[in-house]
């Protein structure tokens, strides 16, 4: 059936089964490829988007459960102050390797920072342990969140 979703501040109408996961609506129906598929079972975090500012796994979030909630994806997270700071820190520290998990990492990190401007290591563990990175960029992810929390000291080096 038809659903009208609010995505990154705009309304989009899609016609899919009610149990279709939001992930596939974003990627295959709307062509927004920034949100990634990693497991389909809420185990890896690659598909993380924000629903009313809360990080959710879009692979298990069915389209009929979204209602009038505001969806934010990686394509628009840079418009939020926390998202912008996280992205800048990611660039400064060159966090990504293959990059495939990083949309999800950034979405989780941005949600953390928006809710908790000064996260401790434990806060970071709690907020980020649902996001797998097979390239093993975790050391820099942690550093990146801390740098973003500290206000981001801007880009260093060439």
């Amino acid at each position: 059936m038809a659903y009208t979703l609010k995505i990154n501040g705009r309304s989009q109408t899609v016609d899919v089964d009610d149990d279709t996961p939001l992930l596939w609506v974003l990627r295959d129906v709307l062509g927004m490829m920034g949100t990634k598929f990693g497991c389909g079972m809420a185990l890896c975090g690659a598909c993380t988007v924000h629903l009313d500012g809360q990080p959710v796994r879009s692979c298990i979030t069915t389209v009929d459960s979204v209602g009038t909630g505001e969806i934010t994806t990686i394509e628009a997270i840079g418009r939020t102050p926390a998202g912008q700071r996280i992205q800048q820190a990611w660039i400064d520290l060159e966090v990504p390797q293959c990059g495939y998990c990083q949309s999800g990492q950034i979405m989780s990190a941005a949600a953390l920072l928006a809710a908790n401007p000064r996260p401790t290591d434990t806060d970071i563990d709690d907020a980020m342990s649902g996001n797998i990175c097979r390239c093993g960029t975790y050391v820099r992810i942690r550093e990146g969140i801390k740098r973003a929390a500290a206000g981001g000291s801007g880009r260093t080096g060439g």
């Binding site: 490829m33 394509e75 966090v95 990504p96 990059g99």
Partner: peptide, 24 residues
Amino acid sequence: GTSARRLDVADKTTGRAQFGIDVR
């Protein structure tokens, strides 16, 4: 010998990087 900036990092932080799975 320098830590020149990676050329692929910016796209990998904005969701723009194109993997095989992202082809449209």
